[in-house]
């Protein structure tokens, strides 16, 4: 077994010393896939999964109607309201559930926009040459420097403050980041000999991208998109806090935080509940990103065994 391990430390598998490749290789034992056990991934899935579950349940059931104010203002936790009520007498747990749905939607929506736009733009800039490359790169740099907040204000001014506006603003801003990452990753892959080998094998460019480029940049991209999901959820909460996101009476976590701000000392549950859930979701998603990083790469996968 020495051979196998030595190869690993030098970054190269060991050479069978006779040079004849027909002899059984020690690496064969490592070739079998083993179940991946990543506690990071597991913890992330549990944390984020709870929030997603909350969001899904809110679609079919919630303890009270969203506009039910029968509970009285600022009721404490318990007494028929698990988390109490807000200053208008609405059930906090119901609001938190709706907020979970909005957060997950905001995250997914933004990341979807960022992924589609960003990867396309990134591929385009990676393959572009000369002035087109310069122009597109400059455009991306400007988009990255452009504050999400300002972008959101512009979109809200043109549209109105809705979840869609917030998601569009966040997604656009993130697509620039994704595009730039994609560009770098693609450029790096394009310098590899296996791309040249594909070309001399007669593989067309579209096919090369589909079969060689995307699979090789995918793990890094997925990890980054997971991180972007967390950032998008935070950004949406921020925009809602500022009144640029979901309009009342729909309860976004950011909006709830803003509303509960004034009564934080007397009724902390209104701020703590959305705050804690927000942290759970973002931490969970980041843990998933870390876990994915370790498990998606077939070469590191075996290194851990």
């Amino acid at each position: 077994m020495t051979e196998r391990a030595t190869g690993r430390t030098t970054g190269r598998p060991a050479e069978p010393t006779t040079g004849r490749a027909t002899e059984p290789t020690t690496e064969r034992t490592t070739g079998r896939r083993r179940p991946v056990r990543s506690y990071t991934l597991l913890a992330g899935c549990v944390l984020a999964g709870l929030i997603v579950l909350l969001a899904l349940v809110s679609l079919v059931w919630s303890p009270y109607a969203a506009d039910d104010t029968s509970g009285g203002r600022l009721a404490g936790p318990g007494s028929g309201h698990l988390l109490g009520t807000d200053k208008l007498g609405r059930d906090l747990f119901t609001q938190v559930m709706t907020g979970a749905r909005i957060a997950v939607e905001a995250g997914l929506g933004s990341v979807l926009i960022a992924a589609v736009l960003g990867i396309l733009l990134g591929l385009l800039t990676a393959f572009a040459q000369g002035w087109l490359d310069d122009t597109l790169s400059a455009f991306l740099d400007i988009l990255i420097a452009f504050p999400t907040l300002l972008l959101a204000m512009l979109i809200v001014a043109a549209h109105s403050a809705t979840l869609g506006s917030a998601v569009l603003a966040i997604g656009l801003a993130q697509s620039a980041v994704v595009a730039r990452l994609t560009r770098i990753l693609v450029k790096r892959v394009l310098t590899q000999d296996y791309i040249t080998a594909a070309r001399t094998s007669g593989t067309s460019w579209p096919r090369t991208v589909a079969q060689h480029v995307l699979p090789n940049i995918w793990p890094t991209l997925v990890v980054n998109l997971a991180l972007q999901f967390g950032l998008a959820v935070l950004a949406e909460a921020g925009l809602s806090y500022l009144g640029l996101g979901v309009p009342p009476p729909n309860a976004s976590w950011g909006g709830m935080l803003q509303e509960a701000q004034a009564t934080f000392t007397t009724a902390p549950a209104g701020a703590l509940a959305p705050g804690i859930l927000l942290v759970m979701l973002v931490v969970g998603v980041n843990l998933i990103a870390d876990g994915l990083r370790d498990t998606l790469d077939p070469t590191t996968r075996r290194r851990r065994t």
């Binding site: 391990a5 598998p13 050479e15």
Partner: peptide
């Protein structure tokens, strides 16, 4: 896993020793 196994050697001042081996032999380590 054992990468270098029970290796012993000595070198006098001014002596010039070669470590020969192929990749994975443990010479660099």
């Amino acid at each position: 896993t054992t990468l270098v196994d029970d290796l012993s050697l000595t070198l006098a001042p001014g002596e010039r020793l070669g470590l020969i081996g192929e990749s994975g032999s443990g010479k660099s380590l």
